[in-house]
């Protein structure tokens, strides 16, 4: 269970996050929506310990996240994918996933160097998990390709796969649909919906493609200028007048309702 209380973050005079409360139950897909610059990625960067908020608290289960350093967050079961994809370009897809498994039951340096049974068993488990992720995302055929050779959409999938390989309890996905053709959004949404059951992890999803979010998430929080403006089921949030204002500017909401869902509301 993730809980943010009164989190505020500003850069100079610009408020990126404004007194945000956010809860995410275990076992569900939640989503943060909002136009570009609404503060969505900043929220992930706070949870990830990239940004230090000026006030507020971030709690995950019993852990005070703000006391951790960024490389420790993953040990508490929180892992993420990146908006711009941060794969290890020179490594193969499979090796990228294996790096994700590195922190699980780490044998000592010497144990590993001399390949003692413990290290070998670990290697097998890591490989098995990476294989499962490849299959789940249907990218097994890319396993030997170097990450830098892949088109952006595939790299997004590998990035998501690496985050899954870390065995997370909470998976943060930063715009997983960006760079993917619209035709694939529905199948991506279906994959994301399966994550809580298949991988025993909850998901916090960010996207400005409303279509993807509505299809993948069961709980949606809408942000504008760093503040929460609406929260609820996808349908509730979609029809909230403040959300429509934030997306399309203050206009006649009823008129825009149909067009908005079709256009996918690219922010």
């Amino acid at each position: 269970m993730l809980g943010l209380r009164g989190v505020s973050l500003s850069f100079g005079g610009v408020k990126a996050i404004d007194n945000l409360d956010l809860d995410l139950s275990d076992g569900i897909v939640g989503a943060l929506i909002g136009a570009n610059g609404a503060g969505k990625t900043s929220v992930l960067n706070v949870i990830n310990r990239f940004y230090e908020p000026q006030s507020g608290s971030v709690q995950y289960d019993d852990v005070d996240i703000l006391r951790l350093r960024s490389h420790q967050v993953i040990k508490h079961g929180i892992s993420r994918s990146f908006q711009n994809v941060a794969l290890f370009n020179q490594l193969t897809v499979f090796d990228n996933l294996l790096v994700g498994a590195d922190h699980i039951s780490r044998p000592g340096l010497l144990t590993n160097l001399f390949r003692l049974p413990k290290a070998r068993r670990h290697g097998r488990e890591a490989r098995k998990r990476a294989e499962r992720v490849l299959e789940f995302l249907d990218i097994s055929h890319l396993r030997a390709r170097r990450a830098s050779e892949l088109p952006f959409g595939e790299r997004k999938l590998v990035d998501m796969g690496r985050a899954l390989t870390t065995d997370p309890k909470l998976l943060l996905l930063d715009e997983p649909a960006a760079g993917m053709p619209e035709a694939r959004h529905e199948s991506l949404a279906k994959l994301i919906r399966q994550i809580p059951d298949e991988w025993e992890a909850s998901v916090l999803l960010i996207d400005h493609s409303m279509a993807l979010v509505l299809s993948a998430a069961s709980h949606v929080v809408a942000m504008d200028f760093g503040a929460k403006i609406a929260e609820g089921s996808p349908d509730e949030v979609r029809s909230d007048p403040r959300v429509i204002d934030a997306y399309l500017g203050p206009q006649d909401a009823a008129q825009q309702d149909g067009a908005q869902a079709e256009a996918g509301l690219e922010g």
């Binding site: 941060a86 290890f88 590195d102 590993n112 390949r115």
Partner: peptide, 24 residues
């Protein structure tokens, strides 16, 4: 080896490697 993989990951992107839990 896994040590080698970790080092290659660090060579590729130290920050992300650290984020993946590698003791860079």
């Amino acid at each position: 080896t896994r040590v080698g993989l970790a080092m290659r990951a660090i060579a590729a992107d130290r920050e992300v490697a650290s984020l993946m839990g590698i003791r860079t």
